[in-house]
């Protein structure tokens, strides 16, 4: 990895320190114990099933359909979601979970038909062309926030950013075990991963389709990102 650069820092920070009545920045700072932690109380103690209910209710408000499925039925539901969104071409991430959730054959079949492409790390230009032409992008959710109807995707090898962004439609497969109450728990997971030396270059929190209210404050669903989104929650415990 190329090392980065920092410029203009010393003078800049010295000015700040001086404004704050000191010569230089403190050598270390400990985070205070905050007097209130309302974030921990949200959906505290909720079961996975209750979290699924909250997810479904909120997803509706953000124009996102949610389907729940057993692991046996997942392929069927995925196929239905795909045809609901108008079928291929499909682009999906290169993710082991597709086969561990029994979707390996489906993927192979669709790939053979030429209607599915699995993401490659390789050429940017090819990747963009394929993802742009795809009608549907499919990924798994790494962490799922019940409160806000949010899937969280960590960039990893084979998990391109474009898959959930460039196609007109997006399907997220949500293993039920990934559900947590809210962003608070995701933030903890990110910090823990980071302590273990894994900081993905991109973490996306996605809550439904892209939208804008920039024209007369009227909601338009679907602007630069996907226009339609379906979540499939699958039993995995």
């Amino acid at each position: 990895m190329e090392t980065g650069t920092i410029s203009g820092k010393d003078k800049f920070l010295k000015r700040l320190s001086n404004r704050m009545g000191r010569e230089e920045a403190p050598a270390s700072v400990t985070l205070p114990a905050w007097s209130k932690r309302p974030q921990d109380k949200v959906l505290e103690g909720a079961s996975q099933d209750e979290l699924v209910d909250v997810l479904i209710a909120h997803s509706r408000a953000i124009h996102t359909d949610v389907v729940t499925s057993t692991s046996q039925d997942l392929e069927k539901f995925l196929q239905e979601a795909v045809s609901e969104l108008g079928g291929g071409p499909i682009v999906c991430t290169r993710d082991e979970r597709f086969s561990s959730f029994g979707l390996g054959n489906y993927l192979k079949q669709e790939e053979k038909n030429g209607s599915l492409h699995i993401w490659e790390e390789g050429s940017r230009e090819d990747n963009f062309k394929i993802a742009e032409k795809a009608n549907i992008g499919i990924t798994f959710s790494d962490v799922t926030l019940a409160e806000s109807g949010t899937v969280v995707l960590f960039r990893q090898e084979g998990i391109g950013r474009s898959v959930s962004l460039l196609p007109e439609n997006y399907i997220a497969i949500i293993p039920k075990s990934t559900l947590v109450p809210r962003m608070t728990q995701a933030a903890k997971i990110i910090r823990d991963n980071q302590k273990n030396g894994q900081m993905p270059s991109c973490i996306n929190f996605i809550s439904g389709p892209s939208n804008s209210a920039d024209i007369e404050l009227r909601l338009v669903v679907g602007v630069h990102g996907p226009v339609k989104v379906i979540y499939i929650v699958v039993e995995d415990a």
Binding site: W119, G122, L145, R155, G160, R161, I190, S201, N204, P209
Partner: peptide, 22 residues
Amino acid sequence: VGQKLTSYITGLTPSPGGEGDG
């Protein structure tokens, strides 16, 4: 905007390169 979370919250750090996009 009265949203619980906006559609996208994106956290970015420098990438080591060769990721195929980004």
